[in-house]
Design a protein around this nucleic acid. Sequence first.
DNA 1: TATAATAGCTTACATAAAGTAACTAAAGGA
DNA 2: TCCTTTAGTTACTTTATGTAAGCTATTATA
Lengths: 108, 108
Amino acid sequence: MNQSIICPRFEKAVSLLSQRWTTLLIYQLLSGPQRFGTIQSSIAISGRVLSERLKDLEQQGVVKRDVIPETPVRIEYSLTEKGFSLEPILKEIENWSQTWVKKEELDD
Amino acid sequence: MNQSIICPRFEKAVSLLSQRWTTLLIYQLLSGPQRFGTIQSSIAISGRVLSERLKDLEQQGVVKRDVIPETPVRIEYSLTEKGFSLEPILKEIENWSQTWVKKEELDD
DNA sequence: TATAATAGCTTACATAAAGTAACTAAAGGA
DNA sequence: TCCTTTAGTTACTTTATGTAAGCTATTATA
């Protein structure tokens, strides 16, 4: 059978971006550092999964976690260079959506 | 709380692309029309989900299903114009992966 | 004619991922 | 001391996906 092997780097990138919420989460952080609660209220993700994703993305070097010793303590999540470098992909998706997603499909 | 509403078209596009297997499936079809079995053996998707995805993508106008009355009958899946228009997004992902995905992360 | 083979699914059941809601820990303030 | 807020975590439920067997149609083979 036609076993044209798919590039493993590409596959890895796809598996990153096709985890539920990951793309929206990164999109959200493109507008600047944000706290756990802010992210949670801007996309419909549950706390359980947000916490999981942030840890995961931190480990992959896409997101950075900063503890700011204010009072009360503040935790800020932001994109690393690797994280910001995803912007062109998101822009392409945005672009595509403007042309191809019709009003009628927006009832989810 | 910071409720900067995310564009619904963008959200829709993201939800399409972050369904498991969808991006790889489209990538695979970029190289031309293919049969059920061929797709199944080129990506690691199960028959159950492949069938589900194809129906879904067909309904969203991304994929076209053609019955070719040969002997035995042959069923070919291909991208529509809407499907092909996703190519720039996939190219960006491919690009990104070449720069940012390191050898060490490839052990999945 | 009966049996088998192949493609393209579908079905029933098992496992993994995500959602929900209640709870905890730490720190400050009333 | 008790209450509030933020940033989670935990236990449990629901949904998505994987696995493997089965089904239907068509042609090939014995």
